[in-house]
Design a protein around this nucleic acid. Structure first.
Length: 112
DNA sequence: GTCTTGACTTCGG
DNA sequence: GCCGAAGCCAAGA
């Protein structure tokens, strides 16, 4: 799949993140089993421009922090979108991050 | 072909 | 919990 670029693979996973759940760059990297966590973050940067409908606000770093909030050039901030999904965000960090964590390498595999 | 950039992660202190 | 350093890999110049 040469036309299937790396950020399109990330796009397929991020779009499957259920409502009110979040995941990390490392989890996506582990699901893809290729690239690196940093490459996922780079992919998302390209994603918000290619696919504006991607729920990138559900993807945070290992600390549960909204790393890409500044890059979310939208009318609604990343934190606002998360709050609308019943996700508490304090000091740019997701509360109950461990509880809301959604692992694509497990949840996605059991569905397919 | 090399070098830089980046929405990261892990480890030790 | 935070901080610094090292490792990581895909695009673009």
């Amino acid at each position: 799949m040469d036309k299937y670029t790396y950020f399109e693979k990330v796009y397929d996973i991020v779009r499957e993140i259920p409502f009110g759940r979040i995941t990390t760059y490392g989890a996506i990297h582990q699901c893809l089993a290729e690239g690196s966590a940093r490459t996922v973050g780079w992919a998302l940067n390209q994603l918000h421009d290619t696919y504006p409908d991607i729920p990138a606000h559900r993807v945070v770093n290992r600390k549960g922090e909204l790393s890409g909030a500044a890059y979310f050039g939208g009318l609604i901030s990343m934190e606002e979108r998360l709050r609308k999904e019943n996700i508490k965000v304090i000091n740019n960090r997701v509360q109950d991050f461990r509880q809301l964590f959604w692992d694509p390498s497990i949840e996605l595999l059991s569905d397919f």
